[in-house]
Computed example of a mutant assay.
Amino acid sequence: MSELVTGEAVALELRPAKLPSRGLAVVLDLTLAVVVYIILSIGLFAATSSLDEAAQTAVTIAGFVLILVGAPIAVETLTHGRSLGKMACGLRVVRDDGGPIRFRHALVRGGIGVVEILMTFGVVACVASLVSARGRRLGDVFAGTLVVRERVPVAPAGFLPPPPPWLAGRFSGLDLSAVPDGLWLAVRQYLTRMHQLDPQVGRGMAERLAADLVARTGTPVPSDVQPAAYLAAVLQERQAREVRRTFANGPAAPGGPVGATPPYGAPRQSPAPAVPAVAPAYAPPASWTPGSGPAPQQAPVGHPVAAPPAPPATEAGPGRSTGFAPPA
């Protein structure tokens, strides 16, 4: 990994391309250029058959320079450092400061590449790349360029490393009302990418972010806490406050006061569905016995129940009542 510093003093972490990937890109570019040169040579030979030998030689040399030298320079200039072979391998030519190349950079690389790649079959370019700390050939050294990798493994995004356990709740009394959202976003992005940065670059960035938080909270960083751990602990405190604020007006927890919520992360218990009351089954009067008459029917809800009809009068007998009273 190469640390480059732009004109704005911004440290860039660029990954220089390895020799195998660069060699494969050069082979692809040369293969395509040779195929185009052969096709063009056949066409030029047919078109210049009526000319003398000197003219045919001049046209052949011009075609060679145009296809094998001019075409790569034009392609890298128009695509800002991406030839067809480099596109296939995920590479790009950039300046030493990380910016896109221009015509003069592509011209110097292409001109020196004729000597170290075409005339020496790539031996000089391979030796120079192996000797250079960033894998640069002579054309890159004189042009001030570098071939870097564009397709790099991407780490899973969104994971925030937790602070040390002994910092839990230590910054609960910190005033975070004056911290802007942009600073919170910068802290979160740093924590998610801190393991991908160079140690020195990451330490300096953590110190600057911690200083910005101190300037807005008014509380200095404890001397026994590292800046990265301080940022993680403060961000966790802010998230905990957001959670409490979000669920402050939630439903009451079982057995708790109104507005209380269960602990964060615990599943909520939904209230049991209301079951409509069922009217009790109708029971006939105790005085009614089976066989003495029709059973009384249950009246609709809200209406009085009619009394059962009296049993028909029968002859008097032992133990039976006729229901007739004789006159006095």
Rank of each mutant, 00 (worst) to 15 (best):
254 P>R: 13
240 A>W: 06
254 P>A: 14
229 A>E: 14
268 R>F: 12
302 G>M: 03
267 P>F: 14
314 T>R: 14
281 A>R: 05
229 A>T: 05
245 R>M: 06
267 P>G: 15
293 G>Q: 03
303 H>K: 00
268 R>L: 15
279 A>P: 14
237 E>S: 15
244 R>M: 11
250 G>W: 08
293 G>P: 06
239 Q>D: 15
299 A>D: 02
234 V>Y: 01
291 G>R: 04
289 T>C: 01
275 V>R: 05
295 A>N: 00
271 P>T: 05
303 H>Y: 04
261 T>S: 11
251 P>L: 08
250 G>H: 08
306 A>D: 01
314 T>Y: 05
241 R>C: 10
314 T>I: 03
314 T>L: 10
306 A>Y: 02
312 P>C: 01
271 P>W: 07
274 A>N: 08
310 A>T: 09
258 V>C: 06
311 P>A: 15
295 A>E: 04
254 P>F: 09
285 P>L: 09
314 T>P: 05
278 V>E: 09
231 L>A: 08
297 Q>M: 01
306 A>H: 04
314 T>E: 15
276 P>C: 09
232 A>F: 04
265 G>P: 07
313 A>S: 06
281 A>Y: 02
275 V>Q: 12
229 A>W: 09
275 V>I: 11
282 Y>H: 13
263 P>I: 12
290 P>Q: 05
310 A>D: 01
271 P>D: 12
